[in-house]
């Protein structure tokens, strides 16, 4: 039996884009657009059914030779404002994470869009995924900041 563990964590990323909200929202809602920016062009395929209860699936070759599988379900959609979805991420050895993402869009002062992405999840290990999370950046600090904020 392998040594299994789970860590629960939340991280938030923020970006400002010089594009109106409708266009940023469309980049998430339109399957062809999302395929372009989020996944490149996966050989194994990408499907997106953008409605509450609809699914997004991605199958693409992982860097370690295995298959990366992502399966999401849209839970909440407010046009131009908010998208909430739950998903599993699998590198071929069972789920590596079970997570929920919230995308929030707001107008910024300059006519652009402020995007806030929050991912909350159960991050699992003990799976046979390729080790391509070699180096961290400042996330140690961010996690500490997060734990201070809790």
């Amino acid at each position: 039996m392998t040594d299994r563990s789970v860590v629960h964590a939340t991280f938030t990323l923020k970006r400002d884009y010089p594009a109106p909200r409708a266009r940023v929202f469309a980049a998430f809602a339109d399957p062809e657009k999302k395929r372009q920016w989020a996944y490149g062009a996966p050989e194994g395929g990408h499907a997106l059914d953008f409605r509450v209860g609809g699914r997004e699936t991605v199958n693409m070759p992982g860097p370690g030779g295995g298959t990366f599988t992502y399966e999401g379900v849209y839970q909440d959609i407010i046009e131009g404002e908010r998208i909430v979805y739950t998903y599993t991420i699998d590198f071929g050895g069972g789920s590596a994470a079970v997570t929920m993402a919230t995308v929030e869009l707001a107008d910024s002062k300059d006519g652009g869009t402020h995007l806030k992405f929050t991912e909350q999840g159960a991050y699992l290990d003990g799976f046979d995924g390729p080790k391509f999370w070699e180096s961290g950046t400042t996330s140690l600090l961010d996690r500490l900041g997060q734990s201070l904020a809790d």
């Binding site: 563990s5 789970v6 860590v7 964590a9 991280f11 990323l13 970006r15 884009y17 940023v24 980049a27 920016w37 989020a38 991420i89 590596a96 994470a97 995007l115 992405f117 991912e119 999840g121 991050y123 699992l124 290990d125 003990g126 391509f132 999370w133 961290g136 950046t137 996330s139 140690l140 961010d142 996690r143």
Partner: peptide, 20 residues
């Protein structure tokens, strides 16, 4: 390992948002 995985995940999403 799980903490390293979260770091990886965060960086991956950051790159996706930059790609957006």
């Amino acid at each position: 390992e799980a903490e390293k995985w979260i770091q990886h995940r965060r960086e991956f999403v950051g790159r996706q948002l930059d790609a957006l």
